[in-house]
């Protein structure tokens, strides 16, 4: 870890001011950032501890949704009675991630900003365009077991590794961001993370000095909520593929199908066409296959991770079968 100045702002305005400089980074739970600082993947000269800024509340919104403070811990969110009752896909996704010890520290905002687990990103003696623009990508010709099959670019095939954001994407949540020189702005979580393109160093839309203040969930809907995470051990492992699903069936046809996928791309993957395809149709194996075709029509494997394409298709089918109580 490189030396840094430790700063603790006492207000949001102060936090903006401290985090505007290029060499400053905000820390909340620290479970990802400190890990990367020890590896010198992250080398801030100023570490701005925003933990004392409040923002831990989970409150109902005027339109019947829920606003989760950026500094609410994953544990607090997953165990909030309203989350458990009305947004179980979110509770399930959080509980499927990491461990209790980590969830006790990890925060809503920090989790959204979690960086990739790509082995080449975390090893500073290897090429990585995300860590060091222009240095190349070690994974494309290397070990790409964990890597993306959707939305990749020649620069980067890394995945966003989290679970919570996948559920937030299915829920169509909104990220509230406080900017240094303007009012708050709101970004749909589906637009918060970026695809790698030519600038894989950018994970998300946050600008310097901006701080996530909350995530807002829309009004709850009556539907089945599922989060399915496929992993190599039964706990404490990142997803090979995960599916967040909010699905309702009425009168034998699918009335709602909000799906998002983890482990497949540089961001939680949401494809609005899936919902269009599924809604109004009677659930069947053939329909789920079609959904799989649509989801994966642009998918590309990199050898080691080719398996994710059939795995995503099969997991999608399994989740839809469970959600619609269809035998396939």
């Amino acid at each position: 870890m490189r030396p840094f100045a430790f700063q603790r702002p006492d207000s949001l305005a102060h936090a903006h001011e401290l985090t505007v400089p290029e060499d400053a980074t905000a820390v909340a739970g620290g479970t990802n950032l400190l890990d990367l600082m020890k590896l010198q993947v992250e080398t801030p000269e100023r570490l701005v501890d925003i933990n004392r800024l409040g923002m831990t509340e989970i409150q109902e919104t005027a339109d019947g949704g829920l606003r989760i403070g950026a500094l609410a811990t994953n544990t607090a969110t997953a165990n909030d009675d309203r989350v458990r009752a009305d947004y179980p896909v979110l509770a399930r996704a959080i509980l499927a991630g990491a461990t209790q010890q980590l969830r006790n520290r990890a925060t809503t905002g920090g989790n959204l900003c979690q960086r990739t687990r790509c082995y080449y990103f975390t090893n500073i003696d290897q090429p990585c365009n995300k860590r060091e623009p222009g240095s190349g990508c070690g994974a494309i010709d290397g070990i790409a077991h964990l890597h993306a099959v959707l939305g990749t670019s020649p620069s980067c095939i890394a995945t966003y590794p989290g679970d919570m954001a996948v559920a937030l994407s299915a829920l169509d949540a909104t990220v509230e961001i406080a900017s240094p020189d303007s009012d708050e702005r709101s970004v749909p979580v589906r637009d918060f993370h970026l695809l790698p393109g030519d600038t894989p160093c950018r994970d998300n839309v946050l600008e310097r000095g901006e701080i996530i203040t909350a995530v807002t969930l829309p009004r709850p809907v009556k539907a089945k909520h599922l989060y399915r995470k496929v992993r190599e051990r039964s706990s404490y492992a990142f997803a090979l593929v995960s599916v967040a699903a909010i699905v309702a069936v009425e009168d034998g046809v699918i009335a709602r199908a909000d799906l998002a996928f983890g482990g497949l791309a540089h961001k939680p993957w949401h494809d609005a066409r899936l919902s269009e395809l599924l809604v109004g149709e009677a659930p069947s194996a053939a329909l789920f296959d079609k959904a799989g075709d649509l989801l994966l029509e642009g998918a590309r494997g990199y050898g080691e991770n080719d398996f994710k394409i059939p795995l995503a298709r099969r997991t999608l089918a399994a989740v839809m079968a469970e959600a619609t109580e269809t035998e396939i």
Partner: peptide
């Protein structure tokens, strides 16, 4: 492991268990 991957450093802070390796004393 010093990276939050094993749990050997688990301690209880304000009643909650955490990985003490992934947090700074200063925090």
């Amino acid at each position: 492991c010093d990276h939050g991957q094993c749990g050997a450093c688990t301690v209880i802070v304000n009643g909650m268990r955490i990985n003490s390796c992934l947090t700074l004393a200063a925090m």
